[in-house]
Design a protein around this nucleic acid. Structure first.
Lengths: 202, 202
DNA sequence: GATAGAAGTGGACAGGACGTCCACTTGTGC
DNA sequence: GCACAAGTGGACGTCCTGTCCACTTCTATC
C-alpha cells in the first residue's frame, strides 16, 4: 500500500519527453510565435500552425488542445519573470519601505505596458475576451493589485482590483495603439489612474 | 439634374418594408433575444436563430450579416435612451450648473451598470472583444467621458477616456457577477474610480 | 380584382475549421 | 537488437458560415 521507498520522491514518475516529441514541441512553438506575430492571432488556425510546424494535426492536438494553450505556453516565461520582479524585485515594482501602493501600481502598469507592447500578439492569442479571467496570470495580477488596494485602505479591494486591471485588456491596448496613441501616453494615463485611485487623498 | 421638388425631402425614397419582411424581422428579433438570454450568446449560431424564428437561412442573412448585428439591433433603443439622458437629462447624469465631472462620471457608471445588469447577454452578443470599439455606441460613450475628463482638467482626456471605459467591458461584468460580486459593490467601486480620477484633488 | 415586376424567401451547396480516431512509425529501456 | 510504450499524421464526421438562385408572395397600378 505504501509507496516504494526507493522510487524518486517526485509524485509523478517523471515520464521523460521523447526526443522527437521535444523537437516537435519546439517546432510548434516557433511556428506559432511567427504566425501570431504576422497575422491577427484570432485568425490563426490549428491547421495553420500544424502546417507551419511541418507536423500533422493529430500530433499538434496531442499536446495543445487549442490555440489559446499554445499562446499561453509562449507567454509563460515572460509573465513569470514579471511576477518574480513584483514579489522580490527592487522598488517601486517590488516591495519597499518608502514606496506607497500608488507608486507600485503605477510601476506595475508600466511593466504591463512593456509586456503588452512586446507581446500583444501573444496576449491576444491567449487572453482574448472572457478567457482572460481564467488565466493563472490574471489571478496573480489580481492578487497583486488587490494587495496594493488593501494597503491604500480601499473599502473593497477585491472589486477594485478587477476594475483597475480592466484598462490592461489586450484588445484595448491594440485598439489604442492602432489609433495612434503612443505607448507613453497610455503609460502616463495609467499612472494618473493609479495615483488617483490609490494615491494619498487630502 | 436637380431633385424633383414634389418628392418627399428624405434622401432615400423610403422603400417601405413589405409586410412579410416586417413580420419576419420581428420574429428574428424575438427569437434572438430569447436565445441570447438563455444561452451563452457566443454559442448562438445564425442557424439557431433562423430555426427559432421559423425562417430560412437565406432570409435571415438578407437583413443581418451576423449575430453581432442582431444583438446591436436589439440593444439600439436602450442605448439611445441612455444617450438622450446624458445629453439632455437631469443632473447628475445630464449636464448641470452645480455638478462636477466626477459626479457625472459616477452617474454615468451607475447608469451603464444598470444597462449591463439588464442586458449583459445582448452586450456580450454585440460588443464582445475587439468588436466593442467599432460600435457607434462606444464612440458615443468615449466622447462623453472625454468631455468630462476635459472638464476635470485631465492632461490627456483622449487616452484617459478609453482607460475609464475599460471597466465597463461586458466580459468583465459577467465575470464579476458570476463570481458573486454584487451590483452595488461594482457601482461603488466605479464611483471611487470616478472621484479618484476626475475628482477635485487637493 | 387582375397583373407585372419588385421584394422577399428558404434550402441546397461549397468551403473551412474543429476535434477525434487509429493504423502506422519511431524512440528507448532492457 | 527486441519489445513495447510513446509519438505521429492524415482521414473522417460534424458543425458553422455565407452565397446563390429558383420559387413564392406582396403591392402598386390600372
Amino acid at each position: 500500500m505504501t509507496r516504494r521507498p526507493d522510487l524518486p520522491l517526485a509524485e509523478e514518475p517523471a515520464p521523460r519527453e521523447r526526443a522527437d516529441a521535444a523537437r516537435n514541441r519546439a517546432r510548434v512553438l516557433a511556428a506559432a510565435e511567427k504566425l501570431f506575430a504576422e497575422r491577427d492571432p484570432a485568425s490563426v488556425t490549428m491547421d495553420d500552425i500544424a502546417k507551419a510546424a511541418g507536423i500533422g494535426r493529430g500530433t499538434l492536438y496531442r499536446r495543445y488542445p487549442d490555440r489559446v494553450s499554445i499562446a499561453r505556453a509562449l507567454l509563460d516565461e515572460h509573465e513569470r519573470a514579471l511576477q518574480e520582479k513584483l514579489m522580490r524585485g527592487a522598488p517601486p515594482l517590488g516591495p519597499g519601505e518608502d514606496v506607497g501602493p500608488a507608486d507600485r501600481l503605477a510601476a506595475f502598469y508600466a511593466a504591463m505596458i512593456d509586456l503588452l507592447e512586446t507581446h500583444v500578439h501573444l496576449l491576444l492569442g491567449a487572453e482574448t475576451g472572457s478567457a482572460r479571467y481564467s488565466t493563472g496570470a490574471y489571478g496573480f495580477w489580481r492578487l497583486h493589485v488587490r494587495h496594493l488596494a488593501q494597503q491604500a485602505g480601499a473599502a473593497d479591494a477585491d472589486t477594485l482590483a478587477d476594475l483597475l486591471l480592466a484598462p490592461l485588456a489586450p484588445e484595448l491596448y491594440r485598439y489604442q495603439r492602432e489609433n495612434g496613441t503612443s505607448l507613453e501616453r497610455i503609460s502616463t494615463g495609467l499612472a494618473e489612474l493609479a495615483h488617483g485611485t490609490l494615491g494619498s487623498r487630502a
